[in-house]
Design a protein around this nucleic acid. Sequence first.
DNA 1: CTTAGGG
DNA 2: CCCTAAG
Length: 743
Amino acid sequence: MELQKRLDYGFNGYQVPATPRATRSARKRVPFKKRVEEKRISAFDLLATVAGKLLLDKESTPVSSNTSSAEDQSKVEKNTVKEERRDGNQSSKLETCDQYSNDREFIVSQLVSQTNDLRSCNFRKSPSLKNDTHFGLTSVVTTSDCSERSGVLKLMNGKIKNEMGSLPCKVETGPFLCGASGGRIKLEFENKGPIHEELDRTDKLSFREVADTCPVEDPVVVDGKPPLLVSSDSSGKTHSYGFNNHLGSFPGKRDDLKVVSRDDDEKSSGCTYLGPIKKPFRPTPLIGDRRIRKTMTSKYLKVAPRLNDVTLSNSDENLKSAYCDRSAYKRIRSERNYPFKKRKFLHYSSVSNSDGGISSEGISDSPEQSINGNASGVYPKMRGVTGESPSLADQRKSFHSRDSHVKFRIKSFRVPELFIEIPESATIGSLKRTVMEAVTAILGGGLRIGVLLQGKKVRDDNKTLLQTGISRDNQMDALGFSLEPNPSQTFPSHCPGGSPLKFPCDTPLPLASLQEEAEFLLETTFFFMSLHGFEIRSLYPATPGLVTRVTRDPSHEPHMHNLCHFVESDHDSAPSPTDMSLDKSTTDSKALVAVPAMSVEALDVVPAHRKSKRSEVVQRRIRRPFSVAEVEALVQAVEKLGTGRWRDVKLRAFDNAKHRTYVDLKDKWKTLVHTARISPQQRRGEPVPQGLLDRVLTAHAYWSQQQAKQQLKQQQQPESCLLLYNSTVRASSRSDGGEKNFG
DNA sequence: CTTAGGG
DNA sequence: CCCTAAG
């Protein structure tokens, strides 16, 4: 047999399209690699910055001036990414962070699979599935050895757990403080190991909160179940005030979501957010691409504000805003089809409405505010000493008496809930990327920190912690932090029809750089993730400093592998992502689109001018050489239909081959012709029977001739056309129906 | 969306 | 297999 030569254009792999058409159109054309160049690392800086902000070290001398005077430096020691899935009615974590030794937790996201999505992967169906995304940052004060951190990505039972390794970076947070500015804020993040200075302090307490749990005092907690777990540091040496911040899950309106119907267990968990979304993450509107324009119909991840969440709050404003959001959302959806492909960018949804959408004034006092923040989990709560042991309390007291420093420890921020819709046939790589994108969108919009005290937003940045009362024990429980969209990123001008939406503009806190940082945050994060579970590292240019620090944890591979196998099994035996782990191709974004719930307005509002297209991680489809059988089918179809009707060929012979588009078939034919013309020795790949190749040449010659005649026909006068036509019919013994039959 | 072609 | 211009 002769070897078939394969034309190799140098691509390493492709992703398998879930749906040929949609997939194809959804595919990104811009190499992710090109876009993810410059500021990868800065993303982590942002992370560190955010975390750093929350790690406050108040000094005895209050500064009346602006917070800008404060100098912050932080080193990020560790970052852990986790994705957790909650079980339907039980707001229990399916999987708790097994490594709390890691001070820094980055809980990324949860996946919601829809009815028809990834069933084979054991994903729960949307209705019963509740997903929460957590984005947590924790300062490092642990004695555990963090020098070597390995990122881990686990995907099991619809749950992706990723633990990131070290994220080394130093961040200087200038002007902005976390709400209370009077004091000087010192940010300290250690890259390696524990911060020794703090280890010895006995006046610190560390608290850990279960990811899904909500603050006890949280108004939203309907069941009254205390979600918060308080734990002292196991090391016994490190004591600090720790708290978890939760960005409430983004409320998505069920009606609007085709994807997932959510359960109400969130209420019990008290982590739902109802505020309007103000800040959209800038979408990547590649509006210019006509192809993508139409494609966005069904495949995408949606995150929408939940109406029912709104009901939790009493405030008319909230309801109103929610309503507005909803209508806005509808409007958007109806009027706009966002290109599926382009929807790489999830819109950043704002966690708090306090800044803008709602009247800025009444918010702080309104009951719903607290409800929102607490219940929705939007506002991270600083865990108080609830249930703290006497000794601990004493320690803390002594601490306070000793000096006026207040230590904050933020265990994590919760990322808003994500909804992801992905075709059953989607690859694991697609799933990964989808999650990635969703998280990226949320985190990439630029963040700022909001401080909540007793459910009220502390707007005066110049107040000292002391003045605010944050330093008092009784206030600690009521202290919360929120991640909020950066106001500066909103672009009112982009609002459709002079959008009714208002954007926060009260706080100039965010640094321009912060936004930038935010954009790269996830990107960078995923860089690390890619080293582990996501296997997308090839997409990112190596970042020596970072890369070297992260080690791959093989133990996590199995999960991914299994899933991959599952998904891939539907198709031909394409190499599973695992197999191609080192390859560039891993993710398939075609059928996947992520749409942040809060981003409804964001879509309208957000400009896409951002240079960052980092989320466009779309990779090539996985390469799937044609089998002899396929070639046979192709040849047969082409013999019948000719070389100019690839769509028909597709329909005729590859209708059920989802991964073969007509373009693919056309390309294959091209290569077949080429193969047939070259010597057998030059051919590569699976040998194609010579007989088949002969037919290829024959058919190609025939149809080429036909094509030429066609053109001649058109150029010449009608008469000659008829003549030509007649002669052609005779010569080629056409079959009826205009299809050619080759013996 | 399809074709046709270059990469 | 990707990307795009054209229709």
